[in-house]
Design a protein around this nucleic acid. Structure first.
Length: 464
DNA sequence: CAACAAAGCGCG
DNA sequence: AAAGCGCGCTTTGTTG
């Protein structure tokens, strides 16, 4: 892995950053080991009960009849074979090795209780084997884990985390989130877990590269809202009809994927299917499919690459939204993407705003995404180094214990709470921008604090 | 038995 | 012409 800071600033960032990350690793995170052990036992009971319930299902019997003693309930290959070859009215797509694709998204297209339960079971197994077991494996004799952070493994000059990986602790599914995060506690009863998150840092970093006026306005004008606007356009909603849930879909199933280089066919499928999966309604309580029908959209469409979308299809609509998105709304962003790609083709490398050179063979999407992803993380890395220095300068007992790409986690002494939050806020919103003049947009940070002595799960938005 | 690749899923 | 960026970890299945 090539790791080439090209400027003094980039070199300093990684030299100092390495030390900060090593200190975090050394500090470690206190684990409520009794809780984790209890949770593991309870979860295994749930897994057992669900497995027994599923054994009475007709699909299970078909599976058993076909595979006999070779039946393996954990085998997606066998599941795909049973679902797509033995059941009526199912048709699957295949992976590049010829197996049936049998991931969560593929199974969700089939309306079967057995498959809903299978997905839930797999989720529980993941929580048990990767997270609870992973934590148990790594706790030291004092009840601490020491997630490791590497700076020399990631193509974009982000960091990675291992043993255990602190970068993918569950948060999106509420039950699993609580199950796992409840086990991360402050090192003493008179402390808090405190997490500071940069909000929208990748979008802001992108804007610092491409200087797109529309994107800059969305960032600077607090009354404007890019995800809301896209939500309204995608689902044909007025300002009075959109909901937070629909806005969330637009953000995560259109805007971010498009920024990363996805295209309308994938976006249309997931934007359409999520309506059914989450039973989404408009603010006025209307079914979203019904609402779209009133606006002339009656079906998803075939979503076949190379084929023209059918009239009155959602696919065709999203294709037009995508065209408008890149040709009108973010025209300057589009121009930057082409210019940046051309410059890379001429030179064989590109330099980040944070002082790194990324060279070697890359396709167009990588060339666009790498500098943005890397620079966004470098903002966080600079901040944690600065915060750490200030903690030492003021002889504080608060310790930094982890980092998740755009957030920093502190184990904060109760009497230092106000000071710590003041310091982190100052560094992340003011000092960072003084350090890097290329940051031409405001930086915002959200602080979340656990009640004294309570877990990471229990953190709440900080109110002074 | 070990080593490896593929598939899948957790996160930003 | 191709068709989502970056990771780490676990299980399954194959190979030797």
């Amino acid at each position: 892995m090539q790791c080439t800071p090209i400027t003094h600033s980039g070199y300093q960032l990684f030299q100092q950053g390495s030390i900060t990350l090593a200190e975090m690793e050394c500090n470690g995170i206190r684990i409520d080991t009794d809780y984790i052990n209890r949770a593991q036992k309870q979860l295994n009971v749930k897994i057992q009960k669900l497995t027994v319930r599923m054994q009475k299902d007709e699909v299970y019997r078909i599976w058993k009849r076909k595979y006999g003693v070779k039946m393996n309930f954990g085998s997606r290959e066998q599941l795909g074979d049973v679902v797509f070859n033995e059941l009526e009215g199912t048709h699957g797509t295949r992976t590049k090795t010829g197996r049936y694709k049998a991931d969560k998204a593929a199974l969700e297209n089939i309306d079967l209780l057995f498959l809903r339960r299978y997905t839930k079971l797999e989720q529980f197994k993941k929580a048990s084997s990767t997270y609870l077991k992973g934590i148990q494996r790594h706790v030291d004799s004092e009840g601490f884990i020491h997630p490791f952070f590497a700076l020399d493994t990631v193509r974009t000059f982000r960091s990675s985390s291992t043993d255990p990986n602190l970068h993918n602790i569950p948060v999106r599914e509420p039950f699993i989130k609580k199950l796992i995060r409840r086990g991360f506690i402050p090192r003493e009863p008179n402390r808090h877990i405190v997490e500071h998150d940069f909000s929208g840092i990748e979008v802001k970093t992108a804007a610092c590269y491409n200087h797109d006026p529309t994107l800059l306005r969305y960032i600077r004008d607090k009354k404007s809202d890019m995800h809301r606007d896209m939500c309204m356009q995608i689902y044909h909603l007025t300002i009075n009809e959109y909901t937070d849930a629909l806005r969330h879909c637009a953000k995560n199933k259109f805007v971010f994927p498009e920024f990363y280089g996805d295209w309308y066919i994938n976006c249309a499928k997931s934007l359409w299917n999520v309506v059914n999966q989450l039973h989404l309604k408009t603010k006025t309580g209307e079914d979203v499919y019904k609402h779209l029908r009133r606006h002339g959209i009656t079906k998803l469409g075939h979503c076949t690459p190379g084929e023209t979308p059918l009239p009155h299809s959602f696919e065709g609509h999203v294709k037009r939204v995508e065209k408008d998105f890149w040709e009108n709304r973010f025209r300057v962003y589009t121009e930057w993407k082409w210019d940046w790609w051309e410059d890379y083709l001429d030179r064989g490398f590109f330099d980040t705003l944070t002082g790194f050179r990324i060279a070697g063979a890359m396709d167009r999407k990588k060339v666009i995404n790498y500098p943005i992803q890397g620079s966004a993380f470098h903002c966080l890395l600079w901040c944690i180094t600065r915060i750490n220095k200030l903690l030492r300068k003021y002889k504080m007992k608060t310790k930094l214990i982890g980092q998740i790409h755009d957030s920093v986690i502190g184990d904060v002494l109760h009497r230092e709470l106000k000071d710590y939050i003041e310091i982190a806020h100052q560094v992340m919103t003011i000092d960072l921008r003084k350090h890097w003049s290329w940051i031409i947009v405001p930086m915002d940070v959200d602080a979340e604090v656990s009640p004294m002595g309570r877990s990471w799960f229990e953190k709440e938005k900080y109110k002074p």
